[in-house]
Design a protein around this nucleic acid. Structure first.
Length: 429
RNA sequence: GGAGGGGUUCCCGAGUGGCCAAAGGGAGCAGACUGUAAAUCUGCCGGCGGAGCCUACGGAGGUUCGAAUCCUCCCCCCUCCA
């Protein structure tokens, strides 16, 4: 059986917003191995859920026999992309960027197979840094019309708030990347968020002028939740892909809290489950729909943190939230365990408390702070006064209730809960 | 370089000498209802064990019994002119 055209796959799964030349791109992707690229900004030491769409797009490309290039923008990050932003981005120091670029490489390796040139990881600092200003202006700059650049949405929206020259040059550098990758790596397609459209098109133009070659661009829709929220933001801040910054359990929680209306769309984008199974999710209701969310959380966590971590997160959530096992006929291709897992709290975040301290008795609001359920004692007091604090499943009545040794359960733990869904375990040391 | 307008708490944004920890909105948190969803209603929403105290209205000084508010200098942003 012939492998499905990856362009159709991407389109079906909701990855495609705009294409520069749909027919040609489809034809290209239906043929022999081609090379495509997406740029990632090393402005933080970890990628977050917001970068998952591009990552998954590259992964899909690779699974369908093409060669993805993940381009770390070590050079362009020195300038700051104005696209989609209303204010100038903070410019980072060279060392920070280099360090970030390194950790991004590690992360991307979990989604893409970089062995034997099946995928490439490049850093544009390698070719941007040595550029010489005069030469660059003469060879590259002359191909750009300022009039046309100003017409680009990217810059137009900045005309009101202000745009400085360094940012104005971003388009030239990103265009140069595309040209460079085409020339040296035979890269024919650039993908990116829809805010990159202007930069991608400019890169195509430059490549045509410099190399006389036709290249293509595909953009992804900006993914927001059906409530209009940005992906990957919670009350605890950004949901990172790095397990040290966001524990797999938290990551799992993020996905299981997906809105009803987003489950199907997210399964298509963020898992590899077959579309015919995902389509059936539309018919699910109530408890069944929650099972689909469980699968989404499991699959997404397994992709980012591995099967083992996903299973631990699942087991912890089942214990804490009384989740029913997922029925066999719901998304049958998923490897999610479908029997009740032995209850385990091992994946839930925990803090250790010295035995002596506990023997004296710790006021509940202080313990909530120590367990990082609340940011300040004031907040903890408020939460507890409003009845939002629970200990071993019981609502805490007084904010300063003393927590002592008799609260330790058979497993040697104290279970704290804030609100409905945030848990912490206290272990006595 | 000149003239004018600005920088307020997570974000937007009101506030022009005491009644200002600062209106209003958004976001967020908790409770009720639920399905770890949404919608709705209620309460909360700088720190400190509640009192008062501390820290906060771009930065540094000053005037005043008292400053987000007035004065001086500095930094940054915007608009128009050059």
């Amino acid at each position: 059986m012939k492998v499905k055209n990856v362009y159709d796959v991407l389109k079906e799964r909701g990855f495609v917003e705009q294409v520069t030349d749909e027919e040609s791109v489809r034809e290209l992707l239906g043929g022999d191995r081609i090379t495509c690229y997406i740029g990632f900004d090393p402005t933080a030491s970890s990628l977050h859920i917001g970068s998952l769409v591009p990552i998954m797009a590259l992964a899909q490309m690779q699974r369908h026999g093409h060669r993805p290039i993940a381009l770390v923008g070590g050079g362009t990050a020195l300038i700051g992309d104005p696209s989609g932003k209303t204010e100038m981005r903070q410019i980072l120091r060279q060392e920070e960027i280099n360090a970030n670029a390194e950790s991004l490489k590690m992360q991307l390796a979990r989604y893409l197979d970089f062995s034997e040139g099946m995928a490439l990881l490049l850093n544009n600092a390698d070719w941007l840094a040595p550029l010489n200003y005069i030469e660059f202006l003469r060879d590259i700059g002359r191909h750009f019309s300022v009039n046309r650049m100003l017409a680009a949405e990217t810059y137009r929206m900045r005309m009101e708030t202000g745009l400085n020259f360094i940012e104005f040059n971003y388009m030239l550098l990103q265009s140069y990347d595309f040209y460079y990758l085409c020339k040296h790596y035979n890269c024919l397609i650039q993908m990116g968020g829809n805010d990159q459209w202007g930069n991608i098109v400019a890169g195509m133009d430059l490549t045509r002028r410099m190399e006389d070659r036709k290249v293509y661009g595909v953009t992804f829709p900006l993914i927001v939740t059906s409530l209009g929220h940005k992906m990957g933001k919670t009350e605890k801040g950004t949901v990172w892909l790095d397990g040290r910054l966001t524990a797999p359990y938290e990551y799992f929680q993020y996905w299981i809290n997906t809105d009803d209306a987003d489950v199907k769309r997210f399964l298509a984008l963020f898992t590899y489950l077959p579309m015919d199974e995902i389509e059936k999710v539309a018919q699910l209701r109530d408890a069944e729909l929650n099972m689909a969310k469980t699968v989404l959380a499991f699959e997404a966590t397994a992709i980012t943190h591995g099967d083992e971590a996903a299973q631990a997160a699942l087991a912890a959530s089942m214990g804490a939230f009384n989740i029913k096992p997922v029925r066999d006929d719901i998304l049958p291709s998923s490897r999610i365990p479908r029997t009740p897992a032995p209850e385990s709290t091992s994946a839930i975040p925990f803090v250790e408390i010295a035995k002596e301290r506990l023997e004296e008795g710790i006021p509940a609001f202080e313990l909530f702070c120590d367990a990082q359920l609340c940011r300040s004692k004031g907040e903890a007091r408020r939460v507890l006064t409003q009845g939002g604090g629970y200990i071993n499943g019981e609502q805490i009545q007084a904010f300063d209730m003393k927590i002592g040794p008799d609260h330790i359960d058979a497993g040697g733990e104290i279970r704290l809960r804030k609100g409905k869904k945030i848990f912490a375990i206290v272990r006595v040391r």
